[in-house]
Design a protein around this nucleic acid. Structure first.
Lengths: 138, 138
DNA sequence: ATAATCCCTATAAATTTTATAGAGTTTGTG
DNA sequence: CACAAACTCTATAAAATTTATAGGGATTAT
């Protein structure tokens, strides 16, 4: 399951995607719309901005806005950013690799081999769904 | 990512699958082989037994053994049993459904729609991989 | 000058995961 | 029959992670 952080990020991105005609959107508006804590959401939007998905404007009249095309924001990226690895085990993670302590020899571990396949197939799914697909469903 | 519980369960099932000629296997042997806490693993094996994957024999000379064919133990089942939902959001879970608080109308929520698709495709992957596939890779 | 707004970091609270403990119960064996 | 070896079951503790809050700082429009 996705963490609330990631879920909230998806809601925020969706909201911003639906309000692209506006110059900026207030954190507060997104938070109220979905009943999310303002402060919690603030941290999430900050991460999304640092990762290059959002732009922001400070001061009065400021707020956030999308700076990428929705079609260029795949689910895989958002999940990785906020939740970490997509792989089911650390020993098969492309971006967060770590050996598994209980496995003596990764190369001849059947679990590892199967999980590499699961990872590749899962990745295909998540790379092919983008914010655009979410917006299309609203 | 899978919890350690699920990961340990997979190691235990694999071990039991590799020792099907033995009548029973000791918890202790599996725990030692993979450096897992005996007591922690005990609870996991208990769950696997209650769910119908393992049989056990008490008393001296006792232990655990597989009672299903490895090909009839799909990853999806093991993950659901020990980790819970496979869906990425509660609102699209088949076995652990719960509405999402921040979504006013599930039916017209784009996130929901996309996540239903992700769930279905992910399920296809995990239902098609079984303990047998793991054993084949050892 | 002021109020609105994002920026940043620290910390607290809640929840979940991981691990341990220990008293049952059953069974094979001498 | 006594005893030791194993699983059974439930409770609790410890650790880690997630979720939420707090508050001072910096920037900007008016």
């Amino acid at each position: 399951m996705l963490s609330k952080k990631t879920k909230y990020a998806l809601h925020a991105l969706t909201y911003l995607g639906k309000h692209r005609e506006n110059k900026t959107v207030l954190i507060q508006d997104i938070a109220e719309e979905h009943g999310i804590s303002h402060k919690f959401l603030e941290n999430i939007l900050l991460e999304l901005r640092k990762a290059g998905y959002l732009g922001s404007k400070k001061g009065k009249g400021g707020g956030y806005y999308l700076i990428k095309e929705p079609k260029d924001i795949p689910l895989s990226r958002i999940i990785r950013l906020l939740d970490g690895p997509i792989a089911l085990l650390p020993c098969v993670s492309l971006n967060y690799y770590e050996p598994c302590a209980e496995c003596k020899n990764e190369v001849q571990c059947g679990i590892n081999k199967v999980m590499v396949q699961v990872r590749d197939e899962t990745l295909k799914i998540l790379e092919n769904k983008s914010l655009q697909d979410i917006l299309d469903g609203e």
